[in-house]
Design a protein around this nucleic acid. Structure first.
Length: 567
RNA sequence: UGGGGCGUCGCCAAGUUGGUAAGGCACGGGGUUUUGGUCCCCGCAUUCGUGGGUUCGAGUCCUACCGCCCCAGCCA
């Protein structure tokens, strides 16, 4: 049902609001700035897994291309071999595909351009716009000045182009150790924008690159690489997040000095923040390596692989990305919106089945022992096309512990001594006896009588039963493990304030129910598929499932106005 | 303290020649209902960070403040 690799369907219905980026594209098209061309790119660094914040960017970039009949490239920004790995390259592609987007043959790597980048750097040197600096890292930092004081020129700043060229070539040849020299742009050490104070564009790193191997020992830096890569690919709109706003003058500066085929427009938007979680690669990687969670695909994580395993659908993710909008204001989106998007999607498409999380035995004393019957159960109350299955019913059932109250609260419609409820699609049943463990006082069994005339869950005498509960037949039910998830952090913004964000981990973010019981049909649901456990929530089959025991992840609970009222 | 951004309902977010505050989520109320689900109604900013000013009229223009975010990696 998650339809991996499915193309994003064309949008129907009202057009989404024109965010400021779409307005820029509209205007560009109006004046013919790019000849009607729209070409974007999604440029992840393969140094971690993608998260929901990336989904926002993916939907924006690929979505924009799709809407305007343009193209969107997938480009790995792999200029720092010390941090990047193929594992991430593979995972990222899987995630983008899962979201429903494709890049056809436009899979690129910044490392594809290393040779060109190098040649451009020599040109810059020849034009006297770049120089090799011998200063140490600490010295460069000291020379850079501070936010309020201008920097000062490096002693190497006025080296002759020929000398710079010679040095730069020897850097490439591997004549110097890591950190011995760097190539810097000659811009302005007094600039109020620190980014422009002769930025380093090449550093020496004798590190093997996941794609270029040991071909290089010097690697270009982001500011230099990104703009040129964009230009080489014919990108029209280079969309990135707000923190790169300071870098835009540098982006433009580099492209203005070089004979590149075009000059894309960099546009910055506010990255996503989600309540009760963290969305930074550094923190996510920390959660994984410090084993706070089980891995990159832990269902509690906001990584796309975690979200996918949790049971979120690409449709819900895209809807979410559309609903949050695009702007330049820092914001933190309420987790409730994400959950809403999933519920809305699954409400329409998920089969309804029954599972009991915390079983309480219920015996129907006036139902013949040894008898069983099949109950007709539609898969969806509003969509008959989804079909139906037979659910076995018998004298001994299990119902949800939470559906019984020995001393009912006011407005309680479910089981209680003497109360009549409907067993969904089966019979009306009245609780006649409550059996307790004499030692602990715990309720261990309910005795009930059923009304045979209410078969199917309906009475012809106009009798009103307000409560309907779900059930499984004791003899037919199958064991299952169910994992319930809650927010990973107890603080809305775990990063805020002093102290470590790990101090705010929610100790109850995972609850494993080992002894749940499910109806037989639930055993046939394939891994990854979403279903609704009636009255409980949407669940999906986890990959940890075995033929003996299915494992379900609760993706999101159903809205529960009773629980809300009780609170 | 230099530079770059941002501030419209609890959370997002429209608002584009200034003309009298969209929508979604959340929340509250009611109806329907064999999921206390769904669905359907209704309500929810005399107000746009604040103070001045221009104007017949300002969220939209001017001005002065205030608050928050980003930048001093040989990270991206």
């Amino acid at each position: 049902m998650t339809a991996p690799d499915a193309e994003v369907p064309a949008k129907s219905g009202p057009a989404p609001a024109r965010d400021f980026i779409r307005q820029i594209v509209d205007e560009d098209n109006r004046v013919g700035k790019w000849g009607g061309r729209v070409h974007t790119r999604f440029p992840p660094e393969p140094n971690g897994y993608l998260h929901i914040g990336h989904a926002k960017s993916i939907c924006l970039n690929f979505g924009l291309a799709k809407e305007f009949g343009g193209l969107c490239n997938l480009r790995f920004d792999d200029t720092n071999p010390a941090k990047e790995e193929v594992e991430y390259v593979d995972a990222i592609q899987e995630d983008v595909r899962w979201l429903g987007f494709s890049w056809d043959d436009r899979l690129f790597y910044a490392s594809d351009y290393f040779e060109k980048l190098y040649a451009f750097a020599e040109q810059l040197i020849e034009k006297g716009l770049a120089y090799v600096d011998d200063l140490s890292q600490e010295e460069i930092r000291a020379y850079r000045g501070t936010l309020t004081e201008p920097g000062k020129d490096s002693p190497c700043r006025d080296r002759a182009p020929e000398e710079n060229l010679d040095l730069f070539r020897r850097m490439r040849a591997g004549e110097f150790p890591d950190g011995a020299k760097v190539l810097r742009l000659k811009i302005d050490m007094q600039s109020p924008n620190v980014v422009l104070r002769d930025p380093v564009i090449y550093r020496i790193k004798h590190v093997e690159h996941h794609r270029t191997g040991n071909t290089w020992c010097i690697y270009p830096m982001y500011d230099y690489t990104h703009c040129i890569s964009d230009a080489l690919e014919g990108i029209t709109h280079s969309i990135c997040s707000l923190e790169f706003e300071n870098n835009r003058p540098l982006y433009d500066w580099v492209l203005n000095q070089l004979p590149v085929p075009g000059h894309p427009q960099q546009i910055e938007f506010a990255r996503l923040n989600l309540s009760y979680t963290v969305l930074s690669k550094r923190k996510l990687i920390q959660l994984v390596t410090e084993k706070v969670v089980s891995g990159w695909d832990d269902p509690r994580l906001p990584t796309l692989s975690g979200i996918r395993r949790r049971g979120y659908t690409p449709e819900a993710m895209r809807d979410f990305c559309e609903r949050i909008g695009v702007s330049k204001a820092d914001s933190q989106v309420d987790m409730a919106l994400l959950e809403h998007c999933l519920r809305e999607d699954l409400n329409a498409r998920a089969k309804r089945l029954m599972g009991v999380l915390r079983p309480l035995k219920l015996v129907i004393t006036n139902y013949p022992e040894g008898q069983a019957e099949d109950i007709h159960f539609p898969y969806h109350p509003e969509d008959a096309s989804m079909g139906a299955r037979q659910v076995p019913f018998s004298r001994e059932l299990y119902v949800e512990r939470d559906d019984f109250m020995e001393v009912p609260a006011k407005k309680w419609f479910r089981l209680a001594p003497g109360a009549e409820v409907r067993l969904r699609h089966a019979y009306y049943v009245t609780c006649t006896e409550v059996i307790k463990d004499p030692a602990t006082g715990e309720v261990v069994e309910l005795r009930c009588v059923h009304d045979p005339a209410t078969k199917g869950g309906w009475s012809s005498d106009g009798r009103k039963v307000k409560g309907t509960i779900h059930w499984v037949s004791a003899a037919h039910a199958l064991p299952a493990e169910v994992r319930l998830y809650d927010r990973l952090f107890t603080k809305e913004n775990p990063t805020e304030g002093k102290g470590d964000f790990l101090d705010h981990i929610n100790p109850h973010s995972l609850e494993v129910i080992e002894n749940a019981l499910i109806e037989p049909a639930l055993a046939d649901i394939p891994v990854g598929e979403n279903v609704q456990f009636e009255r409980l929530g949407y669940f999906c089959v986890d990959k940890d499932s075995t033929p003996q025991k299915r494992v379900f992840n609760r993706s999101v609970a159903l809205k529960d106005s009773w629980a809300k009222a009780a609170r």
